[in-house]
Simulated assay, not measured.
Amino acid sequence: MGLLATTHGTEQGRPGSGPAVVADSAAFDMDSEQICRARDFVRQFLSDARSRGGLDVPARASDIAQLVVSELATNVCKYAPGPCLLDLEVDGGMLGITMWDSGAVLPAAVGADPARAGQHGLEIVLAVCQSFEVRREPVGKRVRVRISLLEGQNAEPAGPTPW
């Protein structure tokens, strides 16, 4: 069990279209051992984005991206074990992270409770991402978040959602 496949892509900026879009994908047969592989995939992707695309990715943004993927992958392991697709895309100063899994139940943030052990993953994701969206798919669901790669940006995180 493990990493099933990866694809690599960089769409060079067309004249007048701005910086290049850097994208990559991986498929995992998600179990608890694969969470660190998903984090490593993000770390390597952002490192490659620096070298291939000349993109400035601060260490803090890389750490946040790995944390978010770790939390999303943990939810897959707990609630939808099995295949998982992870898509990463840097477009300008934003990193898009999209994770598909076969589980039909949509994630729901529960009210903050410092006495509660566990179930804080979605709270963490909402606190650090600029946007959060979840969509039902014909099979499973797709969660998409966007994280700022800009140092010192005042963008607000996604915050509480009605999910």
Rank of each mutant, 00 (worst) to 15 (best):
L88S: 10
S47D: 12
V68L: 09
D48E: 15
V68D: 05
S47T: 15
I35H: 08
T7M: 00
V90W: 00
A20E: 10
R60A: 12
D48S: 14
A38W: 02
S62A: 13
V68Y: 04
E71S: 06
V69T: 10
R50E: 14
F28Q: 06
L95S: 08
D56I: 11
D31V: 05
I97V: 15
V57Y: 00
S32A: 10
G9K: 04
S62R: 09
M30Y: 06
L55F: 06
E89I: 06
G53F: 01
P83N: 13
Q34G: 11
T98A: 15
V68F: 04
D63P: 02
P58L: 03
M94T: 06
F41A: 04
I35L: 11
D56E: 14
Q66T: 08
I97E: 06
P15F: 13
A23D: 10
F28P: 06
G18M: 08
S62W: 02
Q12S: 14
R43V: 07
L55R: 11
N75Y: 01
A65H: 03
A73Y: 00
T7F: 02
A23T: 14
V76A: 11
R52C: 01
P19A: 15
D63T: 09
G16Y: 07
S25C: 14
S17G: 13
P81S: 04
F28G: 07
V90D: 00
A26Y: 07
D48H: 08
F28M: 05
I97K: 02
P19S: 15
S70I: 01
S51C: 06
G82H: 06
Y79S: 11
D29V: 00
S62N: 10
G9E: 08
L85W: 11
G16R: 08
V42G: 07
D63F: 05
G53A: 14
A73H: 01
F28C: 06
D40T: 13
A20P: 13
A65I: 03
G18A: 13
Q44P: 00
M94A: 13
Q34N: 11
G93K: 04
L46K: 03
A80E: 12
R43N: 14
Q66G: 15
G82C: 08
A38R: 02
I64D: 01
L95Q: 06
V21M: 08
D91L: 04
V69E: 09
L95W: 01
G53M: 02
S51W: 05
Q66Y: 05
S47I: 09
Q44H: 12
G54K: 09
V21E: 10
C36Q: 13
L88P: 07
S25R: 15
L46R: 04
Q44N: 13
L95C: 03
S17K: 08
H8D: 13
R50F: 10
Q12P: 11
T74S: 14
D48K: 09
L46S: 03
Q66W: 03
A38Q: 03
C84N: 07
S70H: 06
I35M: 09
A73P: 02
E11Y: 05
S17Y: 10
G92E: 05
S47R: 10
Q66L: 09
D29Y: 14
T7N: 05
Y79E: 12
M30W: 04
V21K: 13
I97A: 06
